[in-house]
């Protein structure tokens, strides 16, 4: 096994570079994880996996989450950082797509001094118990319920006119702790829990984010190229989430099932633009058109998005189909 010295994501021995940040992978020989051992079995580590972690005086057992790579205490059934079941192996298709973990009903996730409980499975609800000093921001139409005394404010946003013209939310709301507030969207799907480490940048399809913790900076990215805007299925903007010095939590709601794939540098993939859910900012997206002719009847056009690595790409299976005739 190897791991990335920046994001600590594990890789197979034949990989050379991290698919997320392009860093050269370090050999994981010091870790006692035996080759071929099931990744979710407790890993007995004599040496710390994180470069700046204090040296361990004694061997200790940790379970590494396959989804977010966070380390969890022995015996834990779900990841403390992302809620992924720890006793279930990653489901990866032969083509390399990894299913987003199906979070068990009532799973609790921790961020800052707050918790998020995921409730339900068909249209899951994220119920946040905010601690003092913590906050989450969100688009106001995803609010399901809140405690009467949970304080609320709005986030000042730049480019309000542009956002209004582009159909993006003009107002981002903030809920402050202490208090409880819950969120859900309007269709069958999955909650995608993405703990973001310092220095990460993630681009998300507009209106797909459910909530985000206050440690993460929110901005938007104007999509370049007229063709990308008109036929890319994203509109004019994408949401961009950037961490600064502290880790934070980002929750998305994907319609249908959600799959993720890590592209190597220069590796490309063609996707239906309506299926795009999120990508690392290192992944480029360009629209390509294909004409499908039927002779006398003219035919139709197909616009597909070419995603080029390095980095992660997330898609949803119940996509928004955009008419391209």
């Amino acid at each position: 096994m190897k791991h990335c010295p920046k994001c600590n994501r594990p890789y197979d021995d034949q990989e050379t570079f991290c698919g997320i940040d392009g860093a050269k992978l370090a050999s994981d020989a010091a870790a006692a994880a035996a080759p071929g051992a099931p990744p979710n079995t407790p890993i007995k580590t004599d040496a710390p996996r994180v470069a700046n972690a204090p040296a361990a005086a004694e061997p200790f057992e940790r379970i590494v989450c396959e989804w977010c790579t966070a380390q969890n205490q022995k015996g834990a059934l779900s990841c403390r950082s992302c809620g992924a079941p720890l006793d279930v192996r990653n489901l990866v298709s032969e083509s390399g797509w990894r299913e987003a973990p199906r979070i068990r009903d009532m799973t609790e996730i921790h961020f800052g001094i707050s918790t998020c409980q995921v409730e339900g499975e068909i249209v899951p609800v994220a119920e946040i118990n905010l601690g003092q000093g913590d906050a989450v921001f969100f688009e106001h139409h995803v609010m399901l319920w809140k405690d009467d005394d949970t304080p609320m404010s709005v986030m000042p946003l730049q480019g309000g006119v542009k956002r209004a013209l582009a159909g993006m939310p003009f107002i981002i709301s903030i809920a402050h702790g202490p208090g409880r507030i819950a969120f859900s969207r309007d269709a069958t799907g999955e909650l995608v829990v993405l703990p973001l480490h310092p220095g990460m940048e993630l681009d998300v399809r507009e209106h797909a984010f459910l909530l985000c913790s206050h440690q993460i900076n929110y901005s938007y990215l104007r999509i370049k190229g007229l063709r990308n805007i008109l036929f890319g299925g994203q509109g004019m903007f994408m949401d961009r989430f950037v961490t600064s010095n502290e880790p934070g939590l980002l929750l998305l709601h994907g319609y249908g099932d959600v799959f993720e794939r890590v592209l190597r540098p220069g590796e490309s993939l063609i996707i239906e633009p309506g299926a795009f859910l999120y990508k690392d900012s290192t992944v480029t997206m360009n629209v390509e058109s294909q004409k499908l002719t039927t002779g006398f009847f003219g035919g139709t056009g197909m616009n597909l998005a070419r995603m080029t690595g390095p980095g992660r790409v997330g898609i949803q299976s119940m996509y928004v189909h955009h008419t391209t005739d």
């Binding site: 489901l91 298709s93 032969e94 083509s95 797509w97 299913e99 199906r102 068909i122 069958t188 799907g189 999955e190 319609y255 249908g256 099932d257 799959f259 299976s317 119940m318």
Partner: peptide, 9 residues
């Protein structure tokens, strides 16, 4: 692949 809106890969 998937359960809610399955994908044929």
């Amino acid at each position: 692949e998937g359960n809610y809106v399955p994908v044929a890969d």
